[in-house]
């Protein structure tokens, strides 16, 4: 198992280097200039000096290598310095956002909590409601419950979040005035009442996202449970005289969760990457919003860094999913 993990990690290195080059080239080749956000009243020679100072006139391989050096070497050193109070990085140049002149990682670090709380709890909620619904739908296939569940997940699956989000805002904010439509990022959870306030403002975005994610996961769960319910070992378990509860929870569920766990693990990176659309709809300034803002402003360091971290997470969670698969299913062995 350990050699398998090590081998997978080694294979991941060239993959990630290739991904970083592709991302860098894609963002660089895209039309637009980092100067486009500079007001037109700024004289051209000043504008040229600003661009010069950003380093965008260097050839692309130089800029890529500089980015790579800053990403893989300078920034981790600064991170260690910040965490342990050492001074390894010295005054080396950090990875700076073109737009805000703030170090990119500091910028991401500011944005991360909002994304993690909202998207993370939406994902958790989605898993928690999707599993029972999927299991029960499969157990009572073609019942009313199953029909309604299928219908709702079809809607959740096929209607985009910007639509359900706006619909929710229209219904719960404009008409009923129950929930705020804008997420207040400055709210700090310090006591019980601020916690309740946080829950209150999280409700709409969490529900919108959870509906979308739950639809997918419950479909996977349902089909996986259905597949297992028809197998002979379930009949064996019944013939043993187990109670129906034990048959479902012990035999069917454990076997049918194997593919579902993989789906859930592979969906994890989106918690970091943020839900670009939903964050935009509810004005949550999380990672997704940061990415959109950076793309609009041609803020190459931010775009490349966020995209690359997402790629790293996807590779990482792929590995996690494979390892989980090996643990859950004794038929699969990695050695």
């Amino acid at each position: 198992m350990l050699t398998y993990i090590l081998r997978r990690l080694l294979v991941a290195i060239p993959t990630l280097i290739l991904i970083s080059i592709v991302i860098f080239l894609l963002v660089d080749l895209a039309p637009g200039s980092p100067a486009s956000e500079i007001p037109l009243t700024v004289p051209p020679e000043v504008r040229a000096r600003i661009l010069e100072s950003l380093g965008v006139n260097e050839p692309i391989h130089v800029r890529y290598l500089l980015w790579a050096k800053q990403f893989f070497w300078t920034e981790p050193l600064h991170g260690i310095d910040a965490a342990f109070g050492t001074d390894w990085a010295g005054d080396s140049q950090r990875l700076i956002s073109y737009q805000s002149r703030v170090p990119v990682f500091a910028y991401i670090w500011q944005r991360l909590p909002q994304t993690l709380t909202v998207i993370g709890s939406a994902y958790l909620l989605a898993v928690l409601i999707a599993l029972p619904i999927g299991i029960y739908s499969a157990y009572r296939q073609y019942s009313w419950f199953d029909q309604v569940g299928t219908f709702v997940s079809m809607i959740g699956f096929s209607v985009p979040t910007f639509f359900t989000g706006l619909l929710m805002i229209m219904l719960f904010t404009t008409k009923l005035g129950l929930f705020p439509s804008i997420f207040d990022t400055n709210l700090r959870v310090t006591d019980w009442s601020s916690f309740l306030k946080m829950l209150h403002q999280m409700t709409l975005p969490v529900v919108v996202l959870a509906l979308f994610n739950a639809a997918e996961i419950s479909r996977y769960t349902r089909s996986s449970v259905l597949e297992n319910l028809g197998l002979d070992y379930v009949r064996t378990a019944r013939a043993k005289g187990l109670s129906e509860r034990k048959v479902i929870l012990k035999h069917v569920l454990r076997n049918s969760l194997i593919p579902v766990v993989t789906v859930i693990a592979l969906g994890m990176p989106t918690i970091f990457a943020g839900a670009i659309v939903t964050e935009q709809v509810f004005k949550i300034n999380g990672i997704g919003a940061a990415l959109i803002g950076a793309i609009v402003a041609n803020d190459l360091p931010v775009v490349v860094t966020i995209a690359f971290i997402t790629a790293v997470l996807i590779v990482f969670f792929n590995l996690i999913a494979d390892i989980l698969y090996g643990i859950l299913d004794p038929r699969i062995r990695y050695d």
């Binding site: 197998l231 002979d232 070992y233 009949r235 064996t236 378990a237 013939a239 043993k240 005289g241 187990l242 109670s243 035999h251 454990r254 076997n255 859950l328 299913d329 004794p330 038929r331």
Partner: peptide, 21 residues
């Protein structure tokens, strides 16, 4: 359930009838 011990079954497909986990 209490009656099950008296009557048992041997299934056709020995692979599918055993829980793989």
């Amino acid at each position: 359930r209490k009656k099950r011990p008296t009557m048992q079954m041997v299934f056709q497909d020995p692979q599918a009838s055993l829980n793989p986990r």
